[in-house]
């Protein structure tokens, strides 16, 4: 069920009990989300996708364990 929010993006319950937290989280802009997405993709590329042999050797067991296509 979609939770109704007021224009500030806060629900009534949260406005009452979690003012501080809600404010910090409602401030969230697209920038940190975009940054998190980019950082996540870069880390996963290194750990799971890159075929460079040094990386591959070191990450070998973990790639097998996580079912990343390995070699």
């Amino acid at each position: 069920m979609r939770i109704e929010t007021d224009p500030s993006g806060m629900t009534g319950h949260r406005r009452r009990h979690m003012t501080t937290t809600t404010q910090t989280r409602a401030d969230l802009s697209l920038m940190p989300i975009a940054f998190a997405t980019l950082a996540g993709l870069m880390l996963l590329f290194a750990s799971g996708y890159a075929q460079a042999s040094v990386l591959h050797g070191a990450a070998h067991d973990q790639r097998h364990a996580m079912a990343f296509p390995c070699h």
């Binding site: 996540g40 990450a59 790639r63």
Partner: peptide, 17 residues
């Protein structure tokens, strides 16, 4: 040790996404 390290890297990556 590499396996531990890459698990952490991988889960941080998943955590970001």
């Amino acid at each position: 040790a590499m396996t531990v390290g890459f698990n952490i890297v991988t889960y941080i990556g998943f955590g970001f996404l």
